[in-house]
C-alpha cells in the first residue's frame, strides 16, 4: 500500500486528481473547508492506493506526495 500526503491548505478542490485515480481512492471532502475556502481532497480508501501517482501527475497545485 502506498502512502499519500496532501498539503491540504493549498488544495483548490478542482477534482482533477479524483478523476485521474484509477482505484477510487480520492474524494473531495464535502464536510471540510480549507483555509482557501475549498473542499479539499482526502483519501477515502487509502488501502486501495497502488502508488501510480496519476493523482499527483494531474494535480495543478502540486499538493500530493506519493510514497511507497
Amino acid at each position: 500500500m502506498a502512502k499519500l500526503t496532501f498539503k491540504t491548505d493549498n488544495c483548490k478542490g478542482c477534482g482533477l486528481c479524483v478523476n485521474a485515480c484509477p482505484k477510487g481512492v480520492l474524494s473531495l471532502a464535502a464536510d471540510k473547508i480549507n483555509k482557501k475556502g475549498h473542499h479539499p481532497v482526502e483519501a477515502v480508501a487509502p488501502e486501495k492506493c497502488i502508488g501510480c501517482a496519476f493523482c499527483a501527475t494531474m494535480c495543478p497545485d502540486c499538493i500530493i506526495k506519493v510514497e511507497k
Binding site: 502506498a2 491548505d9 493549498n10 483548490k12 478542490g13 478542482c14 477534482g15 482533477l16 482557501k36 475549498h38 502508488g51 501517482a53 499527483a56 501527475t57 494531474m58 494535480c59 495543478p60 497545485d61 502540486c62 500530493i64 506526495k65 506519493v66 510514497e67 511507497k68
Partner: peptide, 29 residues
C-alpha cells in the same frame, strides 16, 4: 521510497491560478 514529490525548482508557495487551471501542471513539468 518517494515516488512523487514537488520538484526543487518549483517554489514552495501556493499558486494564484484558478482551480483546475493546467498552468500549475506545466510549471511543475
Amino acid at each position: 521510497m518517494v515516488i512523487f514529490d514537488k520538484p526543487h525548482a518549483l517554489a514552495d508557495v501556493p499558486l494564484h491560478y484558478c482551480p483546475g487551471c493546467t498552468h500549475g501542471i506545466i510549471h511543475r513539468l
